[in-house]
Design a binder for these strands. Structure first.
Lengths: 136, 136
DNA sequence: ATAGAACCTCTAGTGACTAGAGGTTCAAGA
DNA sequence: TCTTGAACCTCTAGTCACTAGAGGTTCTAT
């Protein structure tokens, strides 16, 4: 049996975060010691590893909750793949958007010649969307 | 003079969001009609355009607040460029991270052969960080 | 037995909004 | 001038995924 501090150290998930996961039902209510402290077994540790890993991949807690349910039920992985596919396309969309912003911001930075006394071209450009190429 | 609804329509910023910007001091407190409704002039509209554009580029309200101060003071654009540069490197870091996640998630999806009855390889892989390449 | 690290619950705060309740004002048409 | 209803007002509370702090209790090692 592990204390909350132990599984925190093993998974890298902070102690208050573990309690938060329990509060929202992502982690099952842990067993308690005689003095009311949480005690976890290997399954609890595994589950927290799963959550931590999926969070690291950027999945929302809602998606993880869904994945955990599928895992608990034990079969039919089509749904799991759908969740992963949705997340993947979401990631790709975010990359595309960030790349547009990157280009735009770089362009705006170059629209200023740093002339002393003159207004900053970058600030002007921020005020005037008309100068922009993209649709942000 | 424009009503809050009018500048909302012109900038695409929702009405409650404009009130929120005023509450946190990003928009100056607007003048009022005799019946206590907000009234904006061209400067208010410009300022909201600026904020909306910068938000669209992904800048935080804190960064925008800073930029607005620089703009109000009117000269020395080095600080503005520093803010933009910081944001640009932040965007690049986020792109790099998302690209890692993309690769990892794609790999995990392929680690399942969809055999009926067998446990889902994707879910197994999510539980076991040891299988991973990256450091997410 | 004791010290102090780790644990407990509870409340409140973060960023950037969004939603809703309950009430008031404005502008256009009759 | 009156009426209608769209737009406005303030205030509170909720979102996501935590994080911080107060004030108190339990565990573990010496």
């Amino acid at each position: 049996m592990y204390s909350i501090g132990t599984i925190s150290a093993r998974t890298g998930v902070k102690v208050p975060t573990i309690r938060y996961y329990e509060e929202i039902g992502l982690m099952p209510a842990a067993g308690r010691s005689s003095g009311n402290q949480r005690r976890y077994d290997g399954r609890g540790l595994d589950r927290l590893h799963f959550i931590s890993h999926a969070r690291g991949l950027g999945l929302s807690l809602e998606a993880i909750r869904h994945l955990l349910e599928l895992s608990d039920k034990g079969r039919d992985c089509a749904d799991a793949h759908q969740i992963a596919a949705r997340h993947l396309s979401d990631i790709r969309a975010r990359i595309a958007r960030l790349q547009k912003l990157e280009a735009e911001l770089e362009r705006l930075s170059h629209s200023c010649d740093h002339a002393p006394g003159a207004p900053c071209g970058l600030i002007e450009a921020l005020g005037d969307h008309g100068q922009c190429l993209g649709d942000h």
